Simulated assay, not measured.
Amino acid sequence: MMQEADAHAFIALLKPRVMSLVIFTALVGLVAAPGSMNPVMSFVAILLIAIGAGASGALNMWYDADIDAEMERTKSRPIPMGLVAKEDALAFGMVLSVGSVFLLGLVVNITSAILLAITIFFYAVVYTMWLKRRTPQNIVIGGAAGAFPPMIGWAAVTDSVTLESLVLFGIIFLWTPPHFWALSLFISKDYEKVSVPMLPVVAGERTTRNQILFYTLLMVPCAMAPFLMGFAGIVYGIVVGILSAIFMMYAVQVYRGVKNKEKKLFFFSILYLFSVFGTLALENIVGAFF
Rank of each mutant, 00 (worst) to 15 (best):
N210V: 04
A113R: 01
L30F: 10
Q211C: 12
V252P: 06
S269W: 02
I242Y: 02
L218I: 06
P221Q: 01
M81W: 02
A203D: 13
L116Y: 01
Y250E: 08
P149F: 03
Q211P: 08
E164M: 13
T208E: 11
P177M: 10
G54I: 00
V252E: 03
V252R: 07
M198P: 01
Q211N: 14
G54Q: 07
Q211H: 15
N138F: 12
D68Y: 02
L13P: 09
E283W: 00
Y255Q: 08
S56M: 02
L13R: 06
L185P: 13
I49F: 10
Y250G: 10
A5R: 14
V22H: 00
E72K: 14
A281E: 03
F289E: 09
L218A: 12
A65Y: 11
V107M: 10
G237P: 03
M71W: 04
T111Y: 01
Y250D: 08
N109P: 06
M224R: 07
A147P: 01
V125Q: 07
L104Q: 04
Y63A: 07
V126I: 12
T119K: 00
D66K: 08
L199P: 06
K15I: 13
A144R: 13
L14P: 00
V252F: 12
F122V: 05
F214M: 14
D68K: 03
N38V: 03
R133D: 06
A9M: 05
A251N: 05
M19Q: 15
M229P: 06
S76G: 10
M2D: 08
T207S: 07
Q253D: 14
V254I: 12
F92C: 14
I79D: 09
T207L: 11
